[in-house]
Write a protein that binds this DNA or RNA. Sequence first.
DNA 1: GCTGAAATGATAGCTTA
DNA 2: TAAGCTATCATTTCAGC
Lengths: 162, 162
Amino acid sequence: MRTQRHPIRALDKLDHRILKLLQQDGRMAMKDLAEQVGLSVTPCIERVKRMERDGVIMGYYARVNPAELGAALLVFVEITLDHKSGNMFDQFRREVQKIPEVLECHLVSGDFDYLIKARIGEMADYRKLLGDILLQLPGAVQSKSYVVMEEIKETLAIAVGE
Amino acid sequence: MRTQRHPIRALDKLDHRILKLLQQDGRMAMKDLAEQVGLSVTPCIERVKRMERDGVIMGYYARVNPAELGAALLVFVEITLDHKSGNMFDQFRREVQKIPEVLECHLVSGDFDYLIKARIGEMADYRKLLGDILLQLPGAVQSKSYVVMEEIKETLAIAVGE
DNA sequence: GCTGAAATGATAGCTTA
DNA sequence: TAAGCTATCATTTCAGC
């Protein structure tokens, strides 16, 4: 379901190498990137630009230490909707996207729940968050929460098959 | 637990604005960043560099479309350890970090489980993933899996109080 | 800690292979 | 598609406030 005029070339080894490096350092100079993938600068930049246009590269982000912005506490919350109309799902979808504490929200199979990942400052904010989500979204019932004691791994980087 | 010689200045409004913008576009030119926060280029770069040194900015990353790298399927897996020694936790920690499919792993309170987020290509890879995690880590018992049907929101960006 | 200007270095566009 | 050259633009450094 793309809207491009040109057919999309399959990614080759060089593209994979570029993606691997940019997932590690998104602010890398194109000169260094080109050098490390074994291209000269021009074709390297062209590949990057093309992948940006084609939606392969979806953006570049700085990662900020959550504690420094008063969001040291990470929680996961499972939400269940008690009556599951299409309208309800749409409404939930729209509302949950607006909540800044919510970093992720996924519709999961099984009991057809939402799994939400949120960052807050402290335990006192937890009640407020639950209240904001649960009360604002009629039909939603909180089923379970997890408070994260230790973050063992957290990355966006998807493994690249050389 | 920092190892810097100089005391760390608290983040001010300008720092917050910088962080907000770099969380939205990590490859932004310093010139544009400076303009948008209302500084000239030199002090703006100095602030960015300082925050990088101080661990406020933890890195810059390109975000890649998972489907393009054959990892269209997102799953969450809860893992329980059946005998919980400190050694066991350490072993688990080390091993789980090596698994490329695992994007996140958190030690969560409650039943003292691990919550794992992983990306795989298709359902067939799911068994392999469970096997690799469960078999490699003695004492681990898989308690529950969620397959994501729809990704409603996914960001790393932490809300910045202006 | 901020500004501005000058030197260095990176990128984008054009041309050829 | 890749590479090289050149013009433009961004970043770094330095002097002064």
